[in-house]
Nucleic acid binder design. Structure first.
Length: 215
DNA sequence: TAGTAGCA
DNA sequence: GGTT
């Protein structure tokens, strides 16, 4: 038996993330091709763009959205909007494949009846990162967060309820799905600087789908 | 403070 | 050089 076989058993499974949080390794593996096609379709109507934080800095992660609401940031702050400010039109509808995946993952993690009204689509290129933050612009903290990884690998940072709580590091690969809610719903989290590389499906990018119930 | 930079 |  070679080393690869020893690690193969860890390709799938449930990794504890925090109280109320798990990483479902490989949960979406057989869907990544279709999900990527849906992302390209969304981006053809609401293009990826680099938004500005309230402090006036450009985010290294490019974003777009689909669903009833989209998360945006500009010099005025963070918020959800039903209209894409770049197109002055509604965000693209959430594909049924997205909704079904998010619901299955939430259910698996112990959050039945999850009905996300927003899917934030993040695009990372090598060098891009997302510093520690809380998802707290939603009206309903009872609903969990579901986060799907596609393409290049990354390191997920997951901390505690306070910004200064030490964050733990978790490898995230294409097809992995992280779900957190309950006691960890408002915990600080982020993504470490993306390393270079080429993915057979997405090329020089990592994509992340983040499902939230905004209202 | 979903940001960067500098210092111990 | 990585970490706090």
């Amino acid at each position: 038996m070679g080393t690869g076989d020893l690690f193969a058993e860890f390709d799938q499974g449930i990794m504890p993330l925090a109280e109320g949080g798990v990483i479902l390794r490989g949960f979406a593996l057989d869907e990544v091709t279709g999900l990527f096609a849906d992302i390209l379709d969304i981006a053809s109507r609401s293009p990826f763009r680099h938004m500005t934080t309230p402090g006036g800095y450009r985010m290294s992660v490019a974003i777009t959205n689909c669903g009833d609401y989209g998360w945006i940031t500009d010099r005025r702050g963070y918020r959800y909007e039903a209209i894409d400010p770049a197109t002055s039109k509604s965000w693209p509808a959430m594909p049924s494949s997205f909704l079904a995946l998010a619901q299955r993952a939430a259910d698996m993690a112990g959050f039945p009846d999850f009905w996300p009204t927003c899917c934030l689509v993040n695009r990372y290129e090598p060098g891009a990162k997302l510093s520690l933050h809380q998802d707290k612009d939603e009206a309903d903290f009872a609903a969990p967060i579901v986060s799907v990884s596609l393409g290049l690998p990354a390191t997920f940072l997951f901390g505690g309820a306070r910004r200064n709580d030490k964050a733990r590091r978790f490898p995230l690969n294409s097809g992995d799905v992280a779900v957190w809610g309950g006691a960890s719903r408002l915990h600080f989290h982020g993504v470490d600087t993306l390393a270079g590389g080429t993915d057979s499906l997405t090329g020089p990018y990592r994509f992340n789908l983040t499902f939230r119930k905004v209202r």
